[in-house]
Design a protein around this nucleic acid. Sequence first.
DNA 1: AGGTCAATTACGTAG
DNA 2: CTACGTCCATTGACCT
Length: 470
Amino acid sequence: MAPPKINEYERKRLENIRRNNEMMAALKVQSKATALSNHSKIVTKSYTVKLEKKPKIETPIVIRRSLRTRGIPPDSKGLDLDATSDSNTSTHNSPNKVENIVQNLGPISMKDVYKGVDGSDRSFIETLVGMSNKEFSEEKLNGSVKKMKTECSLDLESLYLDPENIARVLPGRITQVRFCPSKDVNRIAAGNKFGDIGFWNVGESEFFLYHPHEAPISGILFQQHCLSKIYTSCYDGLIRLMDAEKEIFDMVYNGSDNACIYALSQPKNDANCLYFSEGKGGLAVFDNRTGKCSSHWDLHEARINTIDFNPQSSHIVATSSSDGTACTWDLRCIGGPKQSALRTFAHKRSVQSAYFSPTGCSLATTSLDNTVRIYNGVNLEDETSVYHFNQTGRWLSTFRAIWGWDNSHLFIGNMNRGVDIVSTVQKATVKTLESPHMSAIPCRFEAHPYNVGMLAGATSGGQIYVWTSS
DNA sequence: AGGTCAATTACGTAG
DNA sequence: CTACGTCCATTGACCT
């Protein structure tokens, strides 16, 4: 007998959960059976780091404290570097000493936070620097992108997970995964909850792991015109710029109020501005030329999870927020005293992502209300809602439906170690990518910006699966 | 309205 | 193979 007070939505939700549990149970039995029948043990590539004896009792959470708020002069020179690297390697780091961890608020040398086993990231840095010198023909790139977006005809059936393209790139839960935006190289950068950034050339067995941050990575941004420069944002409230030429993780932005940074983005046509979400519903614009924030708006009632620019009109952005809405904004009119969104897309729970399609004419949102919604039409007024179970729980990064290489399909992980493909035309999940080689749930995805059919999925155990189209 | 608390969940590693 | 520890998210229930 159902309690009388329960509303219809709740009832439906519980029903869904129960149904899902049943399904999961069934599938678990199935997967166990296949695991048993599969005698050959799958060995995948994995990162290796120097075995650092970690103190038995570790600080569960390192709260970021700016030097200023702790009454220490901001530039206490040199010591910071040592203090930070020591805090990572120290074997006698007693819990009471936690307060003594001083976050380095200046540039960090890449060498000092490199966590490779052989101590040599020389070749990697040289590759990065080499790429930065390559001349990019902007016209050519744009041309090919446009062509791809409209003419992409990817055969979903051809998507394949080569065991060679699986690797444990990082330890721990991956929060961000990005492809290097180059046609010639299939390089992945991934960030995890510890503040590590790992690099992997798909298919190879080498990894380059750095520890430039002290909390979950919330953004990784390759510079299109200079591939040796990569911005990183973090819950520790910092934005850094990895510069392979200078061999540092430079300090770019340091919020004064210890606010977490949850998202990082940049318009295609303006490399001087960084847009990031900060604290409870804030969106800020950092200007490289002045080294300061040029704007700061309170757009949402809760944290902003993603910031996405419309590919066609770079003054239009979409935000998704834990306040249960996604919004579109016109940056040209956002400055008024009362912020008003172009449109507000209401969900019943926290919204984890809102992304424009490659042509910019559709918007896809993913919410913890167990829907993926697609908005079409000139004003995005046509809503399509597709059921998708999005309760990842606390150990997994939340699901976010991403666009493939055209406007026709979305890719999103599911709780059964698969990748659901949602057709925006059929308004339904039309296919699920599965493989016995996927031993964990892929949560965060990225489609290669130039290589159609190359899709990276990252897990909460540090693995990355790269599907390709053969 | 806003703070606090408990429950939730999957994965790698140690045994 | 099993048991254990994880712990920066979200939500509802319950309290001021």
